[in-house]
């Protein structure tokens, strides 16, 4: 019987990472879309770094930074009693940073394409910032939000290098499906590798299919 634990770990990681990314990306993307600050380009470049850096580079620096011997890792261990290397919380933090551009870029593009008049119209109708955000801004960039969520989710599922560097291969903790596949192949256990691979393939394909279907429908209904 195949151990399904790595698949659960993978989807748990992807879900938590996507949820955290959604919360932090909306304000970040909104700032990037509208700010005229000098620091904007620097932040933009930093957000995009995971797109170009080899995952092993990121993984290596995470390993150094999160290690209990150094500043950040020490601080977390001391105040939150959590160790970020070779642990699930560490994987979440690394994944959030690694998948950040995949969530921020679509949302930023969506916000930049939205007429600023919508927000101002909402203000002139007496509505506050929060109500405007949830009832006007976000509903009107639904396709961008959906794209961001799907890309971030899919990218986290497909993670390999970063996870290997920072998470290791601890069953039930940091052993995700992509690593389990690598492991089984190393052990010449092609059948098990194939099962993991097939399941990942089928699930991710279905998710993408549903999302594109929903997005397409959404665009059509508004034009009827």
């Amino acid at each position: 019987m195949i151990d399904l634990q790595p698949l659960f770990t993978t989807f748990r990681l992807a879900l938590i990472t996507t949820a955290i990314l959604l919360v932090i990306s909306v304000p970040l993307a909104s700032w990037l879309a509208h700010s005229r600050s000098r620091f904007k380009t620097i932040i933009e470049a930093l957000v995009s770094m995971p797109l170009v850096l080899p995952p092993s580079v990121l993984g290596f620096y995470f390993l150094v930074a999160f290690g209990p011997a150094h500043g950040f890792g020490k601080f977390i261990e001391h105040y939150f009693n959590t160790r970020l290397v070779f642990s699930f919380p560490g994987l979440v933090v690394a994944s959030v940073i690694y998948s950040l551009p995949f969530m921020v870029h679509p949302i930023q593009a969506g916000l930049a394409g939205l007429s600023p008049g919508l927000k101002e119209a909402s203000f002139s109708l007496g509505k506050g910032r929060m109500e405007t955000l949830f009832k006007v801004t976000l509903p009107n960039i639904k396709p961008s939000l959906l794209t961001g969520v799907v890309l971030a989710f899919a990218h986290t599922i497909g993670e390999f290098g970063v996870v290997l560097m920072i998470g290791g291969n601890i069953p039930g903790q940091t052993r995700v499906a992509s690593i389990a596949i690598y492991d089984e192949v190393e052990a010449m256990n092609y059948h098990a590798a194939n099962v993991y691979a097939m399941i990942l393939f089928a699930i991710t394909f279905s998710i993408l299919l549903i999302v594109y279907f929903v997005n397409h429908r959404y665009v059509i209904t508004r034009q009827l």
Partner: peptide, 30 residues
């Protein structure tokens, strides 16, 4: 005063209707 606190009705040049709401919902939002 913030825009929200001023007793104004503003009709924008590009109308700025909310695309995610029907005509009635656009009015009810206000």
């Amino acid at each position: 005063l913030l825009p929200q606190k001023r007793s104004i009705g503003f009709v924008f040049q590009d109308y700025a209707l909310f695309p995610n709401m029907t005509v009635r919902k656009n009015l009810e939002y206000a």
